[in-house]
Computed example of a mutant assay.
Amino acid sequence: MATRDHALSRFRTLANMRTPRPLRAFGLMVVFGLIAATFFMIYVPWVQTAYGAGQVIALNPQDRLQNVTALVPGRIEKWYVQDGQVVKEGDPIALIADNDPMLLQRLRAERSLAEAKVAAAASALSTARLDVGRTGTLFREGLASQRESELARIKVAEMEAVLAEARAAITQIDINLARQSLQTVRAPRDGVIQRISGGDKATMVSQGDVLASFAPTQTRRVVEIYVDGRDVPLIRRGQPVRLEFEGWPAIQFSGWPSVARGLFDGEVQQVDLAASTNGLFRVLVQEAKGKTRWPGEPYVRLGANARGWVAMEEVSVGFELWRQLNDFPLQNPALIEENQNGGTARKEKR
């Protein structure tokens, strides 16, 4: 030590050097920052979440976008609507005319002729039944042969077949008339005509061809999100979900739901048993009861993109950081509950 002091006395500049105050302050800040970060990662809670992205859909299949199709073949005679028009249930959308403009008149004439045939067949059948009775009486009295009696019965059977055929013809004509009455395509329910396929009198359509797309109103909306298969076993029905809708301003902190702004609450309604074609599992999310309602139209429409975070277990920030760096799965609530129950049981035994 004496040698060191003697050496320093020979280097006066070195002896007068001291650690700069800014450097000492920076060192203290680093030390206190490390201590604060340690306490922060140990004691500050973080809510684990399972992330998924999807879109807004209608829960009832009848409330989803539908195609209005032609019920009979023909040509488009007239349009009653245009794109974006609001319609009520039963309002006409388009009129389809048959290629033969006189078809309805001809069908009605055929029906009148068929009715006349039915009447004639019914009269002939009544006469044939009378002949059977008379021939039977004569046969019992020995005035007619058995052959004549059998021919009379055969005549009755033939008349019954003719009458049945005439009635079947009337039924077929009625079916054709009913089909022609479907030439006016009507709105299946209240909604909006989203897009018309187009066409005029020169456009031929077949049965089942799409004429327009129709979007019903007053739908019950849900959000479908697709979640990774590693997180799906941990998702249960009724779990809370935080949702962010496309176009709606939001600030998200998935681990601190109380800090996030612009997000809406939901709850898990259903988890699909099988994976979708994209390899992910679909989770349906409905509005949470007693919470802020989701934005309505026109702010959030059917088909709008959405992102969701399913709330899982609460852990420390340090644990969550360690889990994500190692790419470990989320905490299993069943295992946590089992460990807690096991610890309680051991204490009771003691």
Rank of each mutant, 00 (worst) to 15 (best):
W46C: 03
Q48Y: 05
Q48E: 14
T49R: 03
T49V: 13
T49C: 09
G52H: 02
A53Y: 10
A53I: 13
V56R: 04
V56D: 00
A58F: 02
A58T: 03
L59S: 08
L59C: 09
D63Y: 02
R64K: 14
L65N: 00
Q66M: 03
Q66K: 01
Q66N: 08
N67H: 07
T69I: 10
A70F: 07
A70Y: 04
V72T: 13
P73T: 11
G74R: 01
G74Y: 05
K78Q: 15
K78N: 14
W79T: 05
W79E: 04
W79R: 05
Y80Q: 11
D83K: 09
D83T: 08
G84H: 01
V86S: 14
V87F: 02
E89L: 10
G90K: 08
P92A: 07
I93W: 00
I93Y: 01
I93N: 00
A94R: 00
L95K: 04
L95Q: 02
I96H: 01
A97K: 03
D98G: 04
N99G: 12
N99L: 10
D100L: 13
P101E: 05
M102G: 11
L103T: 03
L103V: 05
L104Q: 11
L104K: 10
Q105T: 09
L107D: 04
R108N: 07
E110T: 03
R111Q: 15
A114I: 10
A114L: 10
A121C: 13
A124E: 15
A124T: 12
A124W: 12
L125M: 10
L125N: 03
S126T: 11
A128L: 06
A128E: 07
R129T: 11
D131R: 12
D131M: 12
G133S: 13
G133N: 13
T135F: 01
T135A: 08
G136N: 03
G136T: 01
T137C: 04
T137M: 10
T137I: 13
L138C: 04
L138Y: 07
R140Q: 08
G142H: 06
G142E: 06
L143W: 01
L143P: 01
A144Q: 03
R147M: 05
S149P: 06
S149K: 10
A152C: 07
R153L: 12
R153E: 13
K155M: 05
A157R: 15
M159Y: 00
M159L: 07
E160F: 02
E160K: 04
V162F: 04
E165Y: 11
A166Y: 05
R167Q: 15
R167N: 14
A168W: 06
A169Y: 06
I170A: 09
I170E: 07
T171A: 14
T171M: 10
Q172V: 11
I173W: 01
D174S: 05
I175Y: 11
N176S: 15
N176D: 15
L177G: 00
A178Q: 15
A178M: 14
R179D: 13
